[in-house]
Design a protein around this nucleic acid. Structure first.
Lengths: 222, 222
DNA sequence: TACTTTTTGATAGTATTACTATTATATTTG
DNA sequence: CAAATATAATAGTAATACTATCAAAAAGTA
């Protein structure tokens, strides 16, 4: 019995993977496989093998690999938002909430025991490595209509509203937080793989500091 | 006779496409095709057809589609840097140069007549739609060693140094400009396809303003 | 319990893709 | 002109991304 359920648009699957054991195994193993060998190298055949079932079974849950990735990434944004909502209850100022939000975007995640079939840490690394691939396609407009990007949009809205609490006149809340969320991912990637594109040799703490400064300096009235 | 030559690492091609007519046709047509139908839907067979030659001919110039995309994107960053260097000569303050840099990243490009085989406007749109795909792969580390990302890195350095002229104590010049360059691309994409992720309904001017503000507010001593 | 529906496993098959290889013909260069 | 190189035309292969079929297993229902 799940204490917690993350909502993902029904257009993101053929058959809801959260409802069956096989479905949960697909989620669990595809996160593992994709993080390990990279989205491009994963096939439904390999996933079938990993879940000790067949390619056809995976197709029964997801139309294709792209939809599966979109599902996982949406799940992640949804879960992050839940996590943030929980932590925000313990904080008072919008500024503190924004600071904590940046930390949650960047710092490594512990497993959430309420959801045993998803390893949030691995999923976070998967998101860092793959998230733009779900919208950088020629199908973006139709997929947008089907709710493929709702998770990301909601998270941007939530954070944007916090910014407006600090400065109701700030003109670019959506642009700022789509930038910050995206930078949170890419700075993690750059720190590991293309260090000349970051200044975070000292680790994730530096990324948090960079992003927090950038966020608060942008919002502040002056 | 080219008045201008953009340098791209020799690891980014099998045979230098700038040296032959067929090579230039490959560049020209692949920019067109990729922008039009999207990277995923392009094949070397289709490029072969478009240049009125064959698949095998394209393989003589590029090992695969990924390398071709990396070539085009590196060419673009190299070209942007040349463009910026030219324009910076007419400006005095580092701040003015940064402002102009942001405009060049975001505003539509005119064709550079010195390079007739490359349509810079189309290439810019291609970069907006595809640029993260060259580094978001499991091969990133080996490709990095081969110079696949030099163009991006150099541009970040150049802009980072301008920031340091304004505030020598600024701690995150690389992170800031990898973020700004990347945001320049993604905000263009979001404005067109996922408008809830931007506040630029009014067009590119708003993107320029957002990024300029963010950049200068981040750098400034306070 | 028996009966029906749904889910899964096993297998086969197809079109497309991403190459590699071969050879003949142009074209360029010395 | 001969020699070297570049290109065109074609063929072939392994892997991928599906679609389809059918029987066995499991689950839900009367």
């Amino acid at each position: 019995m799940n204490a917690l359920n993350i909502s993902v648009s029904a257009k993101l699957y053929n058959k809801n993977p959260e409802e069956t054991d096989l479905g949960k195994r697909i989620l669990s193993k595809s996160i593992e496989l994709m993080e390990e060998m990279g989205y491009e190298h994963v096939t439904f055949k390999k996933i079938g093998l990993a879940i000790e079932s067949t390619e056809a079974s995976v197709y029964r849950y997801f139309q294709n690999k792209h939809q599966l990735l979109a599902y996982l990434i949406n799940w992640y944004w949804g879960w992050l938002e839940v996590k943030m909502a929980q932590e925000f209850m313990m904080l008072n100022s919008a500024e503190d909430k924004l600071k904590r939000a940046v930390e949650l975007l960047v710092l490594p995640m512990d497993e959430d025991e309420r959801i045993p079939h998803i390893d949030e840490g691995t999923l976070q690394r998967l998101v860092v490595a793959e998230y733009p691939k779900i919208y950088l396609t020629k199908e973006v407009d139709t997929e947008n209509e089907e709710g493929y990007f709702l998770g990301y949009k909601r998270l941007c809205d939530t954070l944007g509203n916090l910014a407006l609490q600090i400065n109701p006149g700030y003109k670019y809340p959506h642009s700022l937080f789509s930038t910050v969320i995206s930078a949170a991912q890419s700075q993690q990637f750059f720190t590991e793989h293309l260090p000349r594109l970051s200044d975070a040799a000292t680790g994730r703490g530096a990324i948090v500091e960079f992003l927090t400064e950038m966020t608060l300096n942008s919002i502040q009235k002056r």
